[in-house]
Amino acid sequence: MIKKTLYFGNPVYLSLRNAQLVIKLPEIEKNDILPENFKQQSEITKPVEDIGIVVLDNKQITITSGVLEALLENNSAVITCDSKSMPVGLMLPLYGNTTQNERFRQQLDASVPLKKQLWQQTIKSKIDNQASVLEKCTAEEVKCMRIWANDVKSGDPDNLEARAAAYYWKGLFANVKGFTREREGISPNNLLNYGYAILRAIVARGLVTSGLLPTLGIHHHNRYNAYCLADDIMEPYRPYVDELVFGLVQLHGSNLELTKEIKACLLTIPTLEVKIGGKRSPLMVAVGQTTASLYKCFDGELRRISYPER
């Protein structure tokens, strides 16, 4: 079953009752004019076990420790946003698997050659998916990208990822004047940043659920980054976010702000349809298959990570 993503952009009280998330609006709670039965009817409950991601995007949200405990016990990810509504914090469970210690050890003991081979698979999949998005969205020539994908060597020593990215971004948003892909760049960089933050949370959650440390990457190793492995494994999934943002630009123009409507579209990322293992699946479910296969690679049961194909 696909887990739900809950977004809270207004002041709200979040509490726990009988394993249910209780959602109350303070404006209604404090309004003495409204009848008591109306106040009770305005209360909404959601089963905690059905929730995969919670996004907190308002400084006046009140959430109890009981809610946080229940969410984390059910392997949910909790995202907090800054004053610009950009995701700034991520809370994940410490223990997401019954054989956690054993899995940590296998991840820690992974050899350098194995990690380089896994990175090779990751970048090949990413470039192939980028090529498919570019071809679908713009009808651009992608033969060179297919060649680069096939030429990726163990560890990507030739940095074909960067070469493909330069070609990809130049073509995907060619109609957006002055666009370059950079975190503080012009729109739609803001939409891409937001979408990637949601994707990162989904992947980090999947890694924890599979009993892996999201901090220890197979390629990324920035000592200030707590989610290096999540940043590695999300790479082949980024093109799905890119395609979604491309569609929003086509509909609304390039000078987009992160309005509630735009964020609502970006929060559909967990339910985007992807193809993995020859079958259609929601992105969040596919990520779980990817992270499970990654553990099996560390364990020696598999030699390849299961990534989505476009």
Results as ranks from 00 to 15, higher is better:
198 I>H: 13
186 I>P: 03
156 D>F: 15
47 P>C: 06
102 E>F: 13
152 V>N: 02
181 R>T: 01
69 E>V: 00
41 Q>D: 05
271 T>Q: 03
118 L>M: 00
197 A>D: 09
73 E>R: 08
247 G>D: 10
28 I>M: 15
84 K>T: 14
300 G>M: 05
299 D>E: 12
191 L>F: 12
150 N>A: 11
180 T>R: 13
279 K>I: 11
89 G>E: 15
187 S>L: 06
260 K>A: 14
99 T>N: 04
55 V>C: 06
88 V>W: 00
112 V>W: 11
234 M>Q: 05
171 G>S: 08
195 G>A: 00
283 L>I: 01
303 R>G: 06
250 Q>E: 14
284 M>H: 06
276 I>N: 01
161 E>M: 04
111 S>W: 04
301 E>Q: 14
5 T>V: 11
147 I>W: 13
160 L>F: 09
241 V>W: 07
232 D>P: 07
27 E>W: 13
133 V>T: 11
251 L>S: 10
149 A>D: 06
10 N>Q: 14
236 P>Q: 02
220 H>D: 10
47 P>R: 00
212 L>C: 02
142 V>G: 06
218 I>P: 00
59 K>G: 04
293 S>G: 05
63 I>G: 06
28 I>L: 08
180 T>F: 12
249 V>K: 03
269 I>E: 00
64 T>L: 02
199 L>F: 01
179 F>N: 15
210 S>P: 00
268 T>H: 10
296 K>P: 09
69 E>M: 02
158 D>S: 09
169 W>Q: 04
75 N>Q: 03
27 E>N: 13
213 L>I: 14
154 S>A: 12
158 D>P: 07
206 G>I: 01
136 K>G: 02
254 S>D: 09
65 S>L: 13
123 I>K: 00
289 Q>A: 02
181 R>C: 12
32 D>L: 12
32 D>H: 15
228 C>K: 04
54 V>I: 09
106 Q>V: 07
134 L>A: 11
295 Y>R: 07
256 L>T: 07
235 E>A: 10
93 P>D: 05
43 E>Y: 13
2 I>Q: 15
72 L>Y: 11
307 Y>A: 05
80 T>P: 05
68 L>N: 14
299 D>G: 14
179 F>T: 12
1 M>Q: 13
20 Q>G: 05
142 V>F: 01
94 L>G: 06
188 P>R: 03
193 N>D: 05
73 E>Q: 04
55 V>H: 00
91 M>V: 15
55 V>D: 01
255 N>K: 14
296 K>D: 14
261 E>M: 10
78 V>M: 00
54 V>H: 15
36 E>P: 08
204 A>Y: 04
223 R>M: 14
308 P>H: 02
170 K>I: 08
304 R>N: 10
28 I>V: 11
244 L>D: 10
273 E>G: 14
67 V>K: 05
156 D>W: 13
31 N>D: 15
212 L>Y: 02
258 L>T: 08
11 P>D: 09
96 G>I: 05
65 S>W: 01
302 L>Y: 12
26 P>V: 10
87 P>C: 03
280 R>T: 15
91 M>D: 04
